[in-house]
């Protein structure tokens, strides 16, 4: 089922929206490797502060399984400001009747192995349908969307092929991104519905959706609590190990001369097995504070070798 979250109802659906931001972090930062800012496990950018409309897809348990974000092209939007390189230096579209869709994603990890009307393919169609039906009812004629080639292929195979593209495909993270055009016509809507076998009204009753989500979230919290209960008495913390590590780091940061640094590094190297440090970033932080001249290639290489294998 589809839920549209916008500025008018986001207070009511703040917990669902939170799941949307977490899903986006997993997909765009994690799976797709885009350079998006993730804070506290949530991907939120400046366009989320412009009160966009979020099309959110919930499964039968009320869990968020997909989402996308819509903005007007008359005002600030991503193609104009962020993805402009996809447009090869051309000005972006601007029209009262064109919306921009971005951050399209489906929770493929959660849906893996599910079949029929619980499958990735089904929810992808439902989410797309949510976008087109909502846009159409708002007097919108076309959607311009930034998608990746995988999404593009999925859309072509599900009765929802973009009718054209703007600009060119460019690498972005571990995949590429492209700008597709889709109309919001009855034909496209019917074609997606036919492909996915959806005949009902996909938009959720707001109160029912919220109740379902809360029920699912509660069940999940209980399951988590049970899982977190320790089965055995916790092992004593490896105090000795961390003390040793701490000592080495201190020696390194206190080092005043090249000689002392070399000695500290030697000690570190010697003990690296016992320390078992994976704290390369901590090491780099300490050495950053050291006098510049000691930043020799050798000492850096030695630190590299400390990386756990």
């Amino acid at each position: 089922m589809i839920l549209v979250i916008d500025a008018l109802n986001e207070a009511k659906f703040s917990k669902i929206l939170d799941e949307v931001y977490k899903l986006r972090a997993r997909v765009f930062s994690g799976r797709l490797g885009w350079e998006v800012a993730v804070e506290d496990g949530r991907e939120i950018d400046q366009y989320d502060k412009l009160n966009p409309a979020h099309i959110v897809c919930l499964d039968d348990d009320g869990e968020v399984v997909g989402c996308m974000r819509l903005l007007q092209t008359t005002g600030p939007h991503m193609l104009a400001d962020i993805f402009f390189e996809l447009l090869d230096g051309e000005a972006p579209l601007r029209s009262a009747q064109i919306w921009e869709a971005t951050r399209f994603c489906i929770d493929t990890d959660k849906l893996k192995g599910r079949e029929n009307r619980n499958s990735i393919s089904h929810y992808t169609s439902e989410l797309m349908l949510g976008c087109f039906e909502y846009a159409q009812s708002s007097g919108i004629l076309d959607i311009v969307a930034v998608i990746d080639p995988v999404m593009n292929r999925v859309m072509k195979r599900s009765g929802n092929a973009p009718y054209d593209y703007i600009g060119s495909t460019k690498p972005m993270g571990v995949v590429s991104a492209m700008t597709a055009l889709m109309d919001c016509t009855d034909e496209r809507i019917q074609s997606i519905r036919n492909f996915a076998g959806i005949t009902h009204d996909i938009f959720a009753d707001e109160d029912k959706a919220l109740a379902l989500f809360n029920k699912g979230a509660k069940a999940k919290a209980i399951a988590n609590d049970i899982a977190l209960e320790p089965k055995h008495a916790p092992l004593a913390p490896a105090a000795q190990k961390s003390d040793l590590q701490q000592y080495c780091f201190e020696q390194l940061s206190k080092a005043n001369s090249e000689k002392e640094i070399a000695a500290a590094l030697d000690l570190l190297k010697l003990l690296s097995e016992k320390i078992g440090t994976d704290d390369v970033s901590e090491l780099q932080r300490i050495t950053r504070d050291l006098p510049q001249r000691t930043f020799t290639a050798t000492s850096l290489t030695e630190m590299e070798e400390l990386r756990p294998i």
Binding site: D6, A7, L8, N51, A53, L70, L71, Q72, S138
Partner: peptide
């Protein structure tokens, strides 16, 4: 309220 929406 309306001014914060993207849709009518």
């Amino acid at each position: 309220k309306s001014v914060n929406s993207i849709a009518p």
